[in-house]
């Protein structure tokens, strides 16, 4: 169990060093950066993927886009995409790194939004039209609330993807918690590697918990069946 003792001593060294808690390379700053980059990429992905997914799901046109993007996003290696964009666009700004982050996080939201809208019971759709709602209203008032669990699932899967890819993106010079892991590995500073890794894992878990909570709050009680319909 020698690795376990060294694990905890590295952890103690990383979190116990006062210098790791302040300044531009400190834990609070890196945490904030990681949050900032992940949130930026995820927000852009939501802004792109949700409307497109709603449109394709509602009209039934362009379904090929959904299928192809889902398969491509899974097959494309994140590290290769990051290196390609950085080699093409340079490192003058963070955009060469943010673009691939967004590209990779669009498909899960797109697919689940589309599936969510497609999966709505056709009778519900007819009922909404029957009540006198027009196309756009049917979408926003009847279809979206019912599809919301899947849309949020897509966002959750994207968040998993974004947090992981932001970590890898530290290799191509992006800030965030990945820096501890990448720099620590390069300089054989294993306290940094282990401490940074633990921080990223905790960060990912907290993000997941927040999404699970968001789902509870946002989804209508009737849809999630928290409230039984009599």
């Amino acid at each position: 169990m020698s690795w376990l003792t060294s694990f905890f001593s590295w952890l103690g060294e990383f979190f116990g060093t006062a210098a790791n808690w302040s300044g531009p390379g400190g834990i609070p700053m890196r945490l904030l950066e990681h949050l900032e980059f992940s949130a930026l990429a995820l927000a852009l992905a939501v802004v792109i993927a949700v409307p497109v997914g709603l449109l394709i799901g509602h009209t039934g046109r362009g379904e090929v886009i959904v299928v192809v993007s889902a398969n491509l996003a899974r097959a494309l290696p994140t590290l290769g995409l990051l290196v390609m964009f950085v080699l093409l666009l340079g490192t003058a700004s963070i955009w060469p790194v943010i673009i691939p982050l967004v590209l990779l996080s669009v498909p899960p939201i797109l697919v689940n939004t589309y599936e969510g809208i497609r999966g709505v019971d056709p009778e519900l759709r007819d009922a909404a039209y029957g009540m006198g709602l027009r196309g756009g209203q049917v979408l926003t008032r009847a279809l979206v609330p019912v599809a919301l669990p899947l849309i949020l699932l897509g966002c959750r899967l994207s968040a998993i993807q974004v947090v992981a890819t932001t970590t890898v993106a530290a290799y191509t010079g992006l800030g965030g918690l990945g820096r501890y892991v990448i720099d620590g590995f390069a300089t054989k500073d294993y306290a940094s590697v282990v401490g940074g890794s633990v921080l990223i894992v905790l960060f990912a878990l907290v993000v997941q918990i927040l999404f699970a909570l968001a789902q509870r709050v946002a989804v209508s009680p009737g849809v999630s069946q928290r409230q039984r319909i009599r």
């Binding site: 998993i160 947090v163 892991v181 890794s197």
Partner: peptide
């Protein structure tokens, strides 16, 4: 399994190196 799936691969690789 949901928790495991949410773990980013790079830090998991890094933590496993010591083992």
């Amino acid at each position: 399994m949901n928790v495991i799936y949410a773990l980013p691969s790079l830090p998991v690789f890094m933590l496993l190196i010591s083992v």
